[in-house]
Simulated scan of single mutants.
Amino acid sequence: MKILLGKNDDKAVFVKTLLKKHTKTKPNTEANHVFLTELLYAVEEIKLIKTGQLKGRPAEELLKELP
């Protein structure tokens, strides 16, 4: 989860401090970034298919492409 704080006032500093004390963090690697970007793209594509703005493919077609 990403959290973006637009201000750097006392409230934002408090929230950052609170999060650091009660959450575990690790640096985002390039592989994680690529995976998350592709996952977000896939979710958006699914939304477009559900609304009819994009045509989907049957799962059988996808399975036939696998080795």
Rank of each mutant, 00 (worst) to 15 (best):
M1I: 11
K2Y: 05
K2D: 01
L4F: 12
L5H: 09
L5C: 12
G6E: 04
K7Q: 13
K7M: 11
N8V: 15
N8E: 10
D9F: 03
D10M: 09
D10A: 14
K11A: 09
A12C: 11
V15A: 06
K16H: 08
T17G: 15
T17L: 04
L18S: 09
L18I: 02
L19G: 06
K20V: 01
K21I: 03
H22L: 04
H22D: 06
H22F: 05
T23Y: 09
T23N: 11
T23A: 13
K24G: 00
K24A: 01
T25V: 08
T25P: 00
K26V: 01
K26A: 10
N28K: 12
E30I: 08
N32C: 00
N32F: 01
H33E: 05
H33M: 05
H33V: 01
V34H: 09
F35L: 13
L36A: 15
L36V: 07
L39D: 02
L39H: 06
Y41C: 04
E44P: 01
E44A: 12
E44Q: 10
E45N: 12
I49L: 07
K50T: 14
K50I: 08
T51V: 07
G52I: 01
G52E: 04
G52K: 04
G52F: 01
G52A: 04
Q53T: 05
Q53A: 06
Q53L: 11
L54G: 03
L54T: 12
K55N: 04
K55G: 05
G56R: 01
R57I: 13
R57F: 10
P58F: 15
P58Q: 12
A59H: 10
E60A: 10
E60K: 10
L62E: 10
K64Q: 08
K64F: 13
K64T: 10
E65N: 08
E65H: 06
P67H: 03
P67L: 04
P67C: 02
P67R: 06
